[in-house]
Every structure is written in C-alpha cells, then in structure tokens.
Design a protein around this nucleic acid. Structure first.
Lengths: 340, 340
DNA sequence: AGTCTGGTTGGAACCGCTTTCATGAAACTT
DNA sequence: AAGTTTCATGAAAGCGGTTCCAACCAGACT
C-alpha cells in the first residue's frame, strides 16, 4: 500500500468538494467572517477528507508577510552566540514566527546575508547578533520598513540590546583590586577582526579606568591581545606569567580566554587561586564546571529580549527604548582569592 | 535626509521604466532566454535605479519551492544537537537554501512542528535530528514529495545518518575491560523520554554484550538510568560509588553524565583515574578541557552529511545509501587507567 | 403585502513573479 | 521575390491564497 505522490489539495479542491466558493473556504479556515453552521461543517468535512493545508507561500504573497524572522550572526562556532540564539528561539516559540539562521563567518557570507536582508520579502524582521550592518543596508531596511533589532551591537537609529562593556571591565578589575591585587594583567580580543565591534576594546577601557581610579599605573606589558581562542590565550598567558614581575591576577576578556590562562598556569605549575587569580567574562557553561570566577553577561536573555523587542515592532508598536542595557553580575567562584 | 518608507519596486515598475514587458525583465533578472543587448541594458539600468529585488515570496509561489530547509530538533539546550546544527549550517552555506530552525522541547511544540512539516509548502526539505517522525507524518511527507533525512534516528524508508550505538557501547566497555577492570558500572539515559530514540538503550546493549563476551556477569546494581543531566548523573554516581563493592570504572552514556560522575567522585574524595576510571560518550567540547576519556561521535559531521544527503535528494538524485553509519573513535584522555 | 435589514455567499481582483504562446520583424532559403 | 526560419518580445495564464463587493435570501417591520 504505497502512498503515491498525490498533489496536495488546493483551496479550490476543497471548495469544489464542499460545493461552495473559495471565499467561503478561506473564511472557514481563517475563522473570519460569518459562515452558516451547516456550510462550515461541509467545508470542514472536505478539508478533513482532502487533508487540505493552506499553502503558506501563497498566504505569504497574499498577505505580504513571511512569518519568518532572520537571525544573522557570526561565529556560530562559539558558545556565546549560541546561547543568544537559544534565547531567540525560546522567545519566538510561542509566536507565529519561524527562525531562519544565517551564519556569516566569512566576509562574502556576510555579503550574501546582507544581500538577503535587502530582499524586502524574505523575512518580516531581522535580528542582528554581534554585527553592525552597513549604513546602506540600514537605509534599505528602513525603506522597506523591515524592523530590525541589534543584539550585542549598536547602530544609530536601531533599537538594540547590549551590555555596558566598560562597566563590565571595571567590575572585574575592581573586584581584583578589592582583593588586594596590584599587578593585574589583561588579555583582550584582537580588534583586527572585521566583524568585531568594540566589546573587547571597551572592556580594556573599563580595566584601565579601574586601575586609574585606584591610582595604579597601567603597565603596557600587562595588556595583551589575541584572537578569541583558548590556544592563543594560553600562549599569551605563558609569556605573561613568565615576566620578571609576574602578575598576581589576570582578567581575560572572555571565559574561553580565561580557560587558556588556567591551562598556562597549570603548565607552569602556578597554583590557581593561591598564586594567581583569574577572572573571565561571559559565564559560559564550562565556567561553572571549572569553577571560574567571571562577569556574567546574560546571553540567553539578550536573545530573548531582542526577540521580544522585535516582536513588539512587528506588532506595530515602536520599540520602547532605543538601547536596552542588560545588567552584568560578578560571579565569584574558585579562581580568585585575596592577594597575599 | 530621512529615507521615507518607499514601497519596494515590483517587476512591473521596472518594466514600465525600461519601456518593456515584464516577461523581458524576468528574463534579464534570471538570465534566461534571449534578450537583445540594448534592451538588456535598459532593463538593468531600471533595476539599478529602482533598487529592484525580486520578491522571493512571489518567486516561491510561482516556482513552487521555498529554498528553505527545515531543521527540527529537540533539546537545543544541549551541546550535541548544536554541533549537528553547525554541521548543517556549514553544509548548506554554499547552497541556495536557508535554514529554518524548529526546536521541539515539549510535546506540543513537537506537535506544532509536525503540523508544519505537513504543510506541503513551507520547506523544500526536512532534516530531523534525534527525532522519529510518526508514520502518519512520514506518509504525508512522501505524498507531498518533500525529501527528508534523519540524523541520529532511523525510520523505515527514510535515509538517515547514524552511529552504531551498540558498537559504541562495546567499544567503551571493551576498553575498560582491556585496562583490566572487572567491576564496571553503566549510567544511561532515561528512556522514558517521549522523544528519545533508543541510543542509550543500544549503548546499554553494547555494554552488556562486551561484558558477556568477557565472561563477566552483569550486576543489576551497576546498571543505572537517569535523565541526561550532570546533576542527576551525579546523584546516581553518588550511590554507585558508595556500594559495598564499589565499581572501579564507570561508563556513562554521555559526556554530560560523565561530568556528573567526576563531580561525585570529587565529592567523595575518590581520585580519578587512580581509584576510578570514567569514560563518556560524545566528545563534547568540555570533554577535551576536562581531559575526559570518551567515545567520540562526529556530531558536526552528522549534520553536514545529513545536509549533503538532503541536498542530493533535492537535486533529484535518490539518496544513495539508506542508512549511513558514521564511525566512532575512542579518545583516550586522562580519566581512565589500568585497574590495579 | 411591500420594503428594510443584516447575515451568507460567490465572483473577481489582487499579491508579484514565471512561463507559455502568439506575433511581428529580421535573416535566411531556394 | 516569395517562403521559411529564427529571434526578440509582450500579453496573458497560471501559482494558491485573501478580501472587497455585489447579489441573494430570510425574517422584521410598517
């Protein structure tokens, strides 16, 4: 009993079978307008018999919407964007919208994605994660009145969900200062990255600001940069920890890098936290397992919140706040301790 | 200079401006058919001036396709499905297809997703991850000729990408046996889960088979089940490690659970691997950091391969192999050691 | 009994694109 | 020079829905 490929029923088939006009079928399907009881029954019967499902593509064309929200983000490889996506998916789960994912590792991928954004009909709304759209595209989006919300990025005139990276940098550094540390090193992201915004740079500023207000001079040899990877961070930390005057604490701009620092310390037989305090940023899942002290940024929530804002915009309400700043929390675990 | 919301140009606008028919514009846009040089130029000029982008929704309706591949999966919260999605996204990056994500944590979400699958027009193809579709839906899919590939799941008549869980269970257990362990415990997934396939059960079978062929009787008190979480695994391991005859090795059906075992051991001051060997399954990212010995399954590759198979099916080629089994590798790290 | 009113209904236009098909002009035959 | 191809082109018919609008019908009202 092989089910042969039957073309799916169209609205006209249903109408014919029920002996009514297509308009009536549409009314029944969408529960709109007045349809007399018996008529409705006949239509429903026909729908059941034919296993009719309205073609969403046709609906989309007719209603000029797609019920798709595009999520554009770089580095799907990393833990943090994924957390954000999870937030987005969760927030959109109870909405009628689907989530389309666009990963833009490379520049041409980004090109492609933005070309797509420019297609005024592919998505109803856009969520850009850790990505700053070119002005040109923003203009197009606006012209096509496609709402767009940024997550972990800013752009004039677009609503966004962000954190205060400067404050975060200060928070971490101040905590180390309170613990009595004076020789505090910093490992940041390499800002050369074409996509990267200035999160890391801002965290550096926070770091410097905290040191300054504590009256501690900034030592250039304590401030390093490398790509966002454990491996690179490890080798940077290796150098750092073999300086004549070894830092007693390291603030890494991300947990991933902090893990690299921990590895380096282990390799050099430097006990953490006895001889070295380490603090990270993000609070990714591994952090809790390893017991890493860190600055938690609410990744999941950022996605969720961004999606909510977009949903509001889609519902016709103008986005309430232009820039929404999510709070940061210091999560003290086992890799930090008062300086001796 | 505010860009006011101008309705996007339609094909008719372009045609009017270029002084040609819409058919000609379509030909130029799709690079199909013959269009005289000068005419083409005029059309291109008009397209440029009007910033015309064909509406993909309209194209979809006309061409009866969507260029969307739906990826349905439960537990986006966990590390392994995400790795698979990454594989899918990567494989599909250079294709014209977009990826729509459907997370189906709860039963009604699953309901919704399958209802969606049944909509013959929303996606061109489907990738089901760790999910077995009801026969009814499979029938519908076939009737609508929507190709569908399963990843980490099987269903008669649908191509799938899987691993040999039995062999994996044997692999892990045999390794422990080779190390001289005789008291080997097993912690598996709770099979009560409505979505869950029988991966965990199969791994149990592999475990039992390995013990049997080594002539070692299976002790029921050594075989436990709990939900896929570190927390639950930890408490199970807690009990296990306080049995009168404590096992010398534990095989956990997933790395996440293995991490729970490590925690339990730490809590009980049982040294790993000196006093207890632990082996996991999956090889998620944390595993390498923690130095967990495990059975690697190629998650990323499973997504990638599944997407490739689907692409082939979409291109009209029937899927070559019905069930594709990905290899498993034993990854020896620091949590296993010969029995004393 | 005749007109009004309001709920039901179906025809037809429209959403924006692709593609078939007919048409006319240009190029080629014989 | 007349007939036959070939090529470029546009009108129109889908694709499968939604919705405006006019037509119809029954009961309510005068």
């Amino acid at each position: 009993m092989e089910a042969l490929p039957t073309p799916p029923a169209r609205i006209a088939d249903v109408a014919a079978r029920a002996g009514v006009g297509i308009a009536t079928v549409s009314r029944v399907v969408n529960d709109r307008g007045n349809v007399a009881g018996p008529t409705r029954e006949r239509v429903l019967e026909a729908i059941r018999a034919l296993e009719y499902r309205p073609s969403s593509v046709a609906q989309n064309l007719s209603l000029k919407r797609t019920l798709v929200i595009g999520v554009v983000l770089p580095f799907l490889t990393e833990a943090s964007p994924i957390e954000r996506v999870r937030g987005v998916v969760t927030a959109l789960a109870s909405s009628p919208y689907d989530v389309a994912l666009y990963d833009v590792e490379s520049a041409d991928r980004q090109q492609r994605a933005f070309r797509l954004l420019a297609d005024a009909h592919r998505t109803d709304g856009l969520l850009l994660v850790s990505l700053i759209p070119p002005d040109e595209e923003v203009r197009r989006l606006r012209a096509a009145s496609i709402p767009c919300v940024l997550i972990d990025a800013r752009h004039d005139g677009l609503p966004s969900v962000v954190i205060d990276d400067i404050a975060g940098g200060e928070l971490a550094t101040q905590y180390l200062l309170e613990l009595g540390h004076r020789r505090i090193a910093f490992i940041g992201d390499k800002p050369a990255d074409p996509f990267r915004f200035q999160s890391s740079r801002d965290r550096t500023i926070g770091y410097e600001r905290a040191l300054e207000s504590a009256g501690i001079p900034i030592r250039p040899e304590y401030v390093r940069e490398g790509t966002q990877s454990r491996h690179v961070a490890r080798s940077i930390a290796d150098e750092l920890l073999q300086l004549p005057e070894r830092p007693s604490a390291v603030f890494a701009a991300s947990d991933v890098q902090a893990l690299g620092v921990l590895e380096a310390a282990r390799g050099l037989r430097i006990d953490v936290p006895e001889q070295l305090s380490v603090i990270g940023f993000d609070d990714i899942e591994i952090a809790s397992y390893v017991g890493l002290t860190t600055v938690r940024q609410r990744l999941f929530e950022s996605g969720q919140r961004g999606a909510e804002l977009l949903l509001q915009a889609l519902a016709g309400q103008p986005p309430p706040a232009h820039v929404e700043t999510l709070p940061l929390d210091l999560v003290v675990r086992g890799t930090t301790r008062p300086a001796r």
